[in-house]
Design a protein around this nucleic acid. Structure first.
Lengths: 121, 121
DNA sequence: TCAACATATGAACAATCGTTCATATGTTCA
DNA sequence: TGAACATATGAACGATTGTTCATATGTTGA
């Protein structure tokens, strides 16, 4: 992101603008937190990952079963599971040759159900 | 997304798999809803848009002030506002030469604060 | 140890995305 | 009406993303 300063005196309203700058400065979370937040939502912004999460709402499932339940090949699912795991949205457990995935915590449900509310209205 | 059927008898566990298919079939929301949900989260998955929303949490703001508050040029902000408006996350109101943007409803706050909780832990 | 199976991963590709630049549209005021 | 300002938008660009393919790693049982 390249900074591209606009003049401070825009909109012919210097006062409003200055108080806005103050508000923004006080209420805007630190840059890093905003970035992490965007990264988190990016994870939910793919329907394959959403579908994986919906399956995991119901059960702990191995990669192979996820793949066939969602009609996708093993590699694609595996790549997405890695992303979900890196974001600590799912966890995994090996059992013999298989690896079983499940939800890491219940934040995921809350976030998705809030999203659904918005979408369904 | 090209279907690439894996054999149904994967993982040497036909039974588990079949009951999973049933569960998925019953609990997975329709494809269109999943798609819309992913589209919604995609909107939140960009830190410029997140920052715009955080400013709008505090006040109704015109494009020019948004641009200078966030140190970005007018065009970039305007493009992002269009995306936010199309998703009905913000609404706009013209007042003379300026256009003022504000949050469309309070779902946005809820979704973002849930996300923050996850990120902050 | 070796074959068979389940999963993970790197490279490559097309597709999508965010920003910039140039310019168009809309509004006000002289 | 025309200049000045605020906003919107289309094209183009580099950057990022999701999937596929090929192959590597890990596990089991013979």
């Amino acid at each position: 992101m390249k900074p591209d300063f606009s003049p401070v005196e825009c909109c012919d309203s210097v006062e409003v603008h200055e108080s806005l700058l103050k508000i923004v400065d006080e209420s805007l979370p630190p840059e890093e937190e905003l970035y992490d937040l965007a990264e988190l939502f990016k994870i939910f912004g793919d329907s394959t990952r959403i579908r994986i999460l919906f399956v995991l709402f119901e059960a702990e499932v191995c990669v192979c079963d996820l793949a066939s339940a969602l009609n996708m090949n093993q590699s694609a699912i595996s790549h997405q599971l890695r992303i979900l795991k890196q974001s600590q949205l799912v966890k995994s457990r090996r059992e013999g040759k298989s690896v079983f995935y499940s939800l890491a915590d219940d934040h995921v449900r809350t976030i998705i159900s809030q999203g659904l509310e918005h979408v369904e209205e």
